[in-house]
Simulated assay, not measured.
Amino acid sequence: MIVTVTPNPALDITYTLAALRPHASHRVDTVHEQAGGKGVNVARVLRSLGRRTAAVLPVGGASGAAVKADLDQAGLSSLTVPLAGGVTRRTVAVVDRDDATMLNEPGPELSGTEWSALVAGVASLLPSCQALVLSGSLPRGVRPDAYGELVRLARAHGVPVVLDAAGPALTEALSAGPTLIKPNAAELREATGTDDPALAAKELAEAGARTVVASLGPDGLLAVTSTGSWRAFLSPAADIRGNPTGAGDAAVAALAMGLADRTPLPQALNHAVALSAATVHSPYAGMFDRHAYERYLTQVQILPA
């Protein structure tokens, strides 16, 4: 089983329209709601790939009830921590023919008791866990090194950890030794102050992450370890248009599977690039075009970096 932790989940609302124009009124073509947050998206992808998962997340208010109902309807196993007074945030994605614009609410504040309940929930699943995924922002009220606590807990059980976070939530957890981190180019720059992705990834690896896999958008993935570095990308390059929301989460799902199965990193990168690209073809986060995924698997190039 692969366990995902989403400390700041959301009710994702997607508006689809022909074209987004600033400072104008728009007629929305379709509206879609589903449980969201980075770890939830990862769990959704994993389930579509036939993997057993459990999603751990706090929920509160009417939007939290809607998140829980959607998880149940989708057949996603979950362990939810009720919030005494907080309300699960909402995110709005406005998707047109070319791209997506995101509006993200900040989310509720978690008390110390609520965070302890979430940690206890994770601990209860670790004995049967093959990989732990920690994804997204930390909620208000939680210490910046909170992910480090979960990394240390997982390592004590011999469970590999994928950490997908930014800012202090990422940097404060590095000393705990996550197995793999997956920043994007902007997050690399924010964490290190370095514009060169390769140098920035090496710096984070030396700070405690055993493997750094950086997503570089259309340029694919850069992986840095103590024993080697690789670039993985689609060749020929594809002009993929659609909704990129959740593409990074799909890559995390592939990397978590690789850790669970002890797959060599280059092979895991192949699946991560293909799955990430196939997600852009889907209108909603956590979903992917299976035919595109299988096609892209044959088009990924992996070269030493």
Rank of each mutant, 00 (worst) to 15 (best):
V224F: 09
S111N: 03
D12E: 08
E190R: 03
N104W: 00
Q34R: 14
L221D: 01
A191N: 02
R47P: 10
H32T: 14
V212G: 05
A120D: 13
L153P: 06
M102V: 13
L199D: 14
V213I: 05
P22W: 02
A169F: 12
D96H: 10
S116C: 00
L11H: 02
V300M: 06
A223P: 03
T263N: 08
G136F: 01
P160C: 00
A65K: 06
S235M: 12
T101K: 11
A54D: 00
L150S: 12
A65S: 02
P108A: 05
P127I: 00
A305R: 07
A186G: 11
G167C: 03
V224G: 08
E33S: 12
A250P: 15
G64K: 03
V161Q: 05
A209M: 02
I181A: 02
P22T: 01
H271I: 00
T263K: 11
G39L: 00
L83Y: 08
S116R: 13
R44W: 00
V280F: 03
H281Y: 15
R155W: 01
R52H: 10
P266E: 05
P264D: 06
S111P: 08
A285R: 09
E294T: 11
L57D: 03
R262K: 15
A305S: 15
D289F: 11
A232H: 01
S276H: 03
G85W: 07
D239W: 04
R52V: 10
I240R: 04
L134M: 11
A209I: 07
L297C: 07
S128V: 10
L132P: 01
G217F: 08
A165V: 04
G36N: 01
R155T: 14
A238T: 14
V119Q: 11
A166L: 08
L180Y: 08
A146N: 01
A62K: 07
A19M: 11
V31G: 09
V31Q: 12
D70H: 07
T88A: 08
A251L: 14
S215E: 03
G248Y: 08
E190S: 15
A166D: 11
G208T: 03
R231D: 08
K182A: 07
H157K: 13
V159P: 06
S229P: 12
V92P: 10
T227C: 13
G141D: 11
E206Y: 05
A74R: 14
P139C: 07
A173C: 08
E105N: 09
T88D: 06
D164T: 13
W115L: 01
E294A: 07
A285C: 07
P244A: 00
M102P: 12
A201M: 02
T171E: 05
R44P: 06
V133Y: 12
L79I: 13
T179D: 10
